[in-house]
Design a protein around this nucleic acid. Structure first.
Lengths: 210, 210, 210, 210
DNA sequence: AATGAATGAGGTTTCATTCAT
DNA sequence: CATGAATGAAACCTCATTCAT
């Protein structure tokens, strides 16, 4: 809406028109809200069983507004996934120097499980998504940068541990982690994730003599 | 099939309805064909992204015919899943006595990986399905009987091995297996599954001193 | 089962090939059977809710066979209706001389109710059909000849009774009959049709002083 | 609506979402329009022979929009029926005190016929519907409350008239009415409904000596 | 920025009818 | 005469997306 009486600007609406900053803030919050609601519904009912209508209803906004913030339902999903990936990875390697001490390695394991435990439903969604042919591609794109960095860090760590076959050892480790997580998110109520977490940590402590 | 004795035409070419046998055969083949095509499309594009139309087209039949064989798209999926589960499990514990010798245990690991290797795309589909909220339930139903039996067999085996904590040990084992499989089906071209298979077998051979 | 010894045909199957008569008989019976089953299903579930499939199943024959006897589902209905109309009307005016004595008039009323009582479900179907725009036309055709004759007979009867306005009197009479019937078929379990029947007969006996 | 004060354009043309009021109005009108069109088509061709497609076409809207206003085709019919029943009954017993004077009784008859005369096609539809097995149930639900009230009022009236058998007398009366109506809606062009109306009124005036 | 009516393509499903045997 | 697999048109319905306001 344009102000057609610019001369009155300073008089009548001094505080009324929102600053560009404020608008940006509003947009950001709205976007966040929509993504939150959508994530919850996608996780509960699946992407295909969640209509834009339902998202709008649950967010108490209009269908049209969602298209004001996202090009399409697909893009909405994409942004949610990107956020999720970003959030998930940013917890690891806190000092972000690409170097893991022994303690940081055990903390990495601990952190991985804690992250999943804090929201198994979302993890289930992303695990499922990552196995869907149609989604795989763009998910890869989101994930890749982070994944490469983390992989590198882990690789360096295992390298330093002078295992017989580093790659093999890493695969073993990641399989163990991923398998535990998959089992947990498949049956969060009954899988004893803390037991497993401790067992895995103990396992490596014994192995690395630390 | 052409009649090679045209002189007997009047005898053989009497127009008779197909026998019950023949119809049964036709039905069985058609059903199999539809399931095959559907499975392939589901695996390639996902369940929701595969329309009955597409299945019919690829099978070169009419949409309607599919409903002659399956009550609904959902039931089609269900039957495919049941077939898959049945086929997957029937390879394990060959003598089916619920008792695993050491060799049978290693064979079980071997077999698990071989089964997945023989068709990673289908396993990816079923893994994805098993993580989909809406599908979980009926998939559970198909899986459960088999899963319980296998679980029991594994449990007995580990029990006999007198580990400190049997349940924990089993979870560790299944996580390792599942994690390896998930990683493999996520990137079948690059994941060194045979290395991992051997490493896991060696790991347990060392652990159990066999 | 094919006869593989055609040479013995004249010996063993002398009486086997059905005569044209017999075929006609079979056709007639089959047709009757199909119509019976169809009528029952139409009456129970409505014409549109009854598929050819269901009729075939209930009659323990194949779908295709029905088309051997009837051009279409519509034609099947048409023939059923025609039969029904024929059967319904042929009970009236037994000596068929177009002349109703007093007793025959009361018998006509009695007969009308008895006919409806003997099968309210079928009457409900035909009443419903007669009110359906799409059906009205061909039903008219079936009904008309009979209706005209009965109307004439009734008209003559009332004429002889020298009412003030014959047409009006007849309409009153037929309305009374039809209304009673409609109410009965709408709620056959609770409508006291016999009471009404007697009341109507008494009503006319009093009126006509007979 | 054109803005006749173009100078104020900047004031009026601000693009605002429609108010809730406006949307309510739109919804109400559209719903009414759809029901009107549907009723006409149902009456002309029957419920089953009228597709959502045809309704949309005749209303010059899209198929989808109908589902914005009605859950299903069945619900559309149901709402139409409810409207019809409500409209039909609300004319009777004007002071709504459940008590019929003699004059009100004759007025009731008069009114019944007038109502039917004003729209025989719709009455035909509802009569037909009320005889359809599948529909009977929900139609009953719509009708019942009104029917019970009217029945009661009529019953009281006949009771006061001290007939030999009240129930019988009422059935006779309702049969007469219903039969007349059925005959009229079956052949509205030729059935002399006014004659019958008068005859019935006279009949009861004579009977009750009023 | 916000609304929700409206669209229309596409999905699942049904079913009268055909046809080879 | 008899079968039931197969067809295909058309039905009902869903939903991402657009658009006037």
């Amino acid at each position: 809406m344009k102000n057609i009486y610019p001369i009155f600007d300073h008089t009548f609406s001094q505080k009324m028109p929102k600053t560009e900053e404020q608008y940006k803030e509003i947009r950001k919050e709205r976007k966040e809200q929509i993504k939150d609601v959508a994530l919850q519904l996608f996780a509960d009912n699946g992407f295909h069983n969640t209509s834009i209508q339902k998202i709008a209803q649950k967010a108490s906004i209009s269908k049209g507004l969602i298209y004001n913030y996202f090009e399409s339902k697909e893009e909405l999903l994409q942004e949610i996934v990107e956020d999720f990936v970003k959030n998930s990875y940013q917890d690891f390697d806190p000092n972000n120097d690409g170097f893991l001490t022994d303690d940081e390695f055990y903390f990495f394991i601990e952190k991985s499980f804690e992250t999943v435990k804090s929201n198994p439903v979302h993890w289930k969604l992303f695990m499922a998504l990552s196995l869907q042919p149609a989604v795989t591609e763009f998910l890869m794109k989101s994930t890749n940068d982070y994944a490469v960095r983390v992989s590198k860090t882990i690789y360096d760590f295992f390298e330093r541990k002078k295992c017989k076959n580093t790659t093999e050892e890493i695969m073993f480790f990641t399989s163990l982690l991923k398998g535990t997580i998959v089992q947990f998110i498949s049956m969060p109520e009954i899988f004893p994730i803390d037991l497993l977490k401790n067992k895995i940590i103990d396992f490596y402590k014994t192995k690395f003599n630390t």
